[in-house]
Design a protein around this nucleic acid. Structure first.
Length: 277
DNA sequence: CGTAGACCCTGCGCGC
DNA sequence: TGCGCGCAGGGTCTAC
């Protein structure tokens, strides 16, 4: 479901409602997620704490809680099928509901995740960077330091197709399967091309394309192919703007050549065989 | 060391 | 209608 833009949209939609509210109870209905939820530890770290701020790192939503010391951070990852929504108290439980946070305002923040690739855990805020999920993460593509030169430097001595490189979170975070195809299409770069064979100018174009695609997707509320929704259940509409992803056989918007689908590292890649070299 | 593939899950749409 | 198959936005581990 979610790549960087979807998590950013989720964060922005929840922020005004959550900041200032207090978590009164963490209810774990089904601990079976990618990493089993630890109910006792979760409750201990979040119960009674006021929500100070929301942040995003990579595809993780970070809910920062006040507390003694540096405070605690509630970490939520949506995996492929996770949905985090704010609902009124008394809303009936839905299938695949794993965790619900009861808030002082009476609302509930609940996580549903049919495929169970998601994650919920709480960490001491000052230990976040040392956590294995975060310690190896690469650069944020919407940060000022991200550039073609940065990508080129990260690619030095590496091999393999540029699409896999772009989706490697140790290099740059947040670019998943949809936005990798879209960025390469916009940059006019063939997804199979080796990172060892990209000029500096093309690295620049790629970095610009990534920034443009992600920014536009955020502005349009994310991509809803099946089930993405923000914290209040609203769908995104960037799917209307997709140029390559999920358009196999349909004409390229630039040259009319049918969009092609191939499989790289077990994931679908969509590209225009004429415009992308 | 880096890269490719398998794997973790459920649900949906499609063709037969 | 019902069934089997392929496919799905992610991350991690293993084998080469």
């Amino acid at each position: 479901m979610p790549e960087l833009p979807e998590i950013e949209v989720l964060k922005r939609s929840l922020e005004p409602h959550l900041v200032g509210d207090t978590i009164e109870r963490a209810v774990v209905r089904d601990p079976r997620l990618r990493e089993p939820v630890r109910p006792a530890e979760l409750a201990r770290r979040v119960t009674g704490r006021r929500i100070r701020a929301l942040r995003r790192r990579s595809k993780y939503l970070l809910i920062e809680l006040e507390g003694p010391g540096a405070g605690e951070t509630l970490v939520v990852h949506l995996g492929m099928s996770g949905r985090l929504t704010l609902v009124p108290a008394g809303e009936p439980e839905e299938p695949h509901e794993h965790v619900a946070f009861h808030l002082r305002s009476g609302r509930r923040l609940r996580l549903r995740d049919p495929r169970r690739f998601g994650m919920v855990l709480a960490l001491a805020s000052d230990k976040l960077e040392q956590n294995p999920h975060f310690s190896g993460l690469g650069i944020e593509p919407l940060s000022g330091e991200f550039s073609g030169a940065w990508l080129a430097a990260a690619a030095a001595g590496r091999r393999g197709p540029v699409k896999s490189f772009l989706m490697d979170a140790r290099v740059v975070v947040g670019v998943g399967n949809i936005y990798a195809s879209e960025s390469l299409y916009l940059a006019g770069i063939h997804p199979v091309r080796s990172v060892a064979r990209l000029s500096a100018a093309r690295w620049d174009r790629l970095a610009e394309a990534v920034v443009q695609v992600l920014s536009q997707a955020i502005a349009q509320g994310g991509t809803t192919l099946n089930d993405f929704a923000d914290g209040e259940g609203r769908s995104g509409y960037f799917q209307i703007s997709l140029s390559a992803y999920a358009r196999e056989g349909e004409p390229c918007l630039t040259c009319g050549t049918p969009i092609r689908r191939i499989v790289q590292s077990g994931r679908s890649t969509f590209y225009c065989p004429r415009c992308q070299r």
